[in-house]
């Protein structure tokens, strides 16, 4: 037990150190920042998909509402940024609660309903009718709060928290219960697991992570239009990274995000003309030949993957 805690602590420290030190070696902080964003988001997807089997295609909805929530708290109520981020996270959790009836759906229905929900949130936020509140299509402009360095380190903290949460879930009875529900909901319910409540809880944790990350992203970006934070590609990236690494593990999505997002940028910088083509082909090949994620390679050889 003690050794496990040790391992967990080491993992968190290594992740933090990697991103605290990385800017010394590589000065494209935006890239590093977005890599953290995707690691955290894919861990959020992981909590839901890896532990409950629900694939949230509309995950970006929480990210976007977190970005907007935090920005609007800064702009309208003059909240200090860090407090506003927490507020954005809380708003995302609230949205998760409102949308929790979606969890009654299964499989593709859930995936698509969550996608529809995220698009609905986007269209409401960006509608000119709400211009006085959300600035509608004119987007967000956080000039006076702009602080790229501080927002970078806040993102490191959020990432560390996310990793810690995933580790906790993996180790806890809560996580075991979730996975039991994923594999066989009926038996789990019969064994006395409060299925609906547990699942809703996982959904809200996942939403909260996306909300916090969205807030940090908004703070770091500081000038953006609504489509930038509600772009479907954000969901898709997080999902692809999770699946590539291997859902249900901690290191899988971490590895998936670092490798695939790194590759995405390497292709973008070295072969801009064939960017989309190469990336699409890569996704197809990965899914065809490694459908259970990179972690499955290790598992197949009998090792335990954290």
């Amino acid at each position: 037990m003690l050794r496990r805690r040790w391992v967990d602590a080491v993992v968190v420290v290594v992740v933090v150190l990697a991103f605290v030190l990385a800017p010394q070696a590589y000065s494209n902080e935006t890239l590093l920042f977005q890599m953290m964003v995707y690691i955290a988001l894919s861990q959020g997807v992981n909590i839901l998909y890896g532990f409950t089997g629900y694939l949230p295609f509309g995950y970006v909805g929480f990210f976007g509402i977190g970005a907007y929530g935090a920005s609007l708290l800064m702009l309208h109520l003059n909240w200090p940024p860090i407090l506003a981020l927490l507020g954005g996270g809380a708003i995302a959790v609230l949205l998760g609660l409102v949308l929790s009836p979606l969890l009654r759906l299964s499989g593709a229905y859930f995936a698509i309903a969550s996608l529809a929900a995220s698009q609905a949130v986007y269209l409401i936020v960006s509608n000119p009718a709400l211009q006085n509140v959300t600035y509608g299509p004119y987007g967000i402009q956080l000039v006076s709060q702009f602080n790229p360095t501080l927002s970078y380190y806040v993102m490191v903290v959020i990432l560390a928290l996310t990793v810690a949460v995933v580790l906790y879930i993996r180790r806890s009875r809560f996580g075991t219960a979730l996975q039991a529900m994923r594999d066989d909901p009926v038996s789990a319910a019969m064994a006395g697991v409060p299925v609906v409540r547990q699942r809703t809880f996982a959904w809200m944790i996942s939403a909260g992570i996306a909300g916090l990350v969205g807030g940090a992203f908004a703070w770091q970006t500081s000038v953006f239009y609504p489509d930038a934070v509600f772009s479907l590609s954000i969901s898709i990236f997080a999902i692809v990274f999770t699946l590539f690494g291997g859902a249900g593990t901690l290191l899988g999505p971490l590895f998936g995000s670092v490798v695939l997002y790194g590759m995405y940028n390497t292709i973008g910088i070295s072969d801009p003309q064939y960017f989309q083509l190469i990336y699409g082909l890569l996704i197809i090949l990965l899914v065809l030949f490694l459908p259970d994620g990179a972690a499955s390679l290790l598992k197949r050889r009998g090792s335990h993957v954290l």
């Binding site: 590589y26 890239l31 670092v258 790194g262 590759m263 940028n265 390497t266």
Partner: peptide, 8 residues
């Protein structure tokens, strides 16, 4: 290591 190398 990948993090640093992967960035090009």
């Amino acid at each position: 290591a990948l993090l640093i190398a992967g960035c090009g």
